[in-house]
Amino acid sequence: MRDTLSVVTVVVVGMMVGVEFAVAVFVNPILDRLPEDGGIGARSDGARVLGRVMPFWYVGSVVLGGGWAAVAWGDAGAAAVTAGVALLVASVVMSLLVLVPINARVATWSREGAPADWKQQVGRWDRFHYVRVAVIVLAFALFAVALARA
């Protein structure tokens, strides 16, 4: 049971990290280079789609990590799992306090209806998103270390 839980957790968190990394490093920079504010509609659509999916993915990752930490308590790697879960919880809190409010605004935009400061708003989202990506990458690394120790 513990082995299955640890592998599923690493896979789920790893895929989440991959998606968030791709958004930060590839997708949003490409959208920002589209001519004539062409990225507004794509960012808005991405905010709506990922805004529906990612909360379940983040919370699911925390639950899986918490379950793994509980069943591995006292074993080798349990401290790494616990630290990874704490980082995921921090990423959820950061998301709720900073990223979700911006994302909710972006989700309502269209090319014709974006506010004048839309570039500043998505720039702020991007900067906080880079921090969140770093946090979840570290959580993933801790989970991978714990899995290797199991």
Rank of each mutant, 00 (worst) to 15 (best):
D3F: 10
L5M: 13
V7N: 02
V11S: 05
V13T: 11
V17P: 14
G18Y: 15
E20T: 05
E20Y: 10
E20R: 00
F21Q: 03
A22L: 15
A22W: 15
V25H: 12
N28C: 12
R33N: 15
L34K: 15
D37Y: 02
G39H: 15
G39K: 12
G41L: 11
R43I: 03
G51I: 09
M54A: 05
W57G: 11
W57S: 10
V59W: 10
S61D: 11
V62H: 02
V63P: 15
G65M: 11
W68A: 09
W73R: 09
W73N: 04
A79K: 02
A79P: 01
T82A: 10
A83N: 11
G84D: 04
A86I: 09
L87T: 01
A90R: 04
A90H: 05
V92N: 05
V93N: 00
M94F: 08
L96I: 06
L97H: 12
V100Q: 06
P101T: 01
N103S: 13
R105Y: 04
T108W: 06
W109I: 05
A114V: 01
D117Y: 09
D117K: 06
V122M: 02
Y130R: 00
V131Y: 00
R132M: 00
V135Y: 04
I136T: 13
V137K: 06
V137M: 13
L138Y: 05
A141F: 10
A144G: 14
A144Y: 13
V145L: 09
A148I: 00
A148N: 00
R149D: 02
A150P: 09
A150N: 11
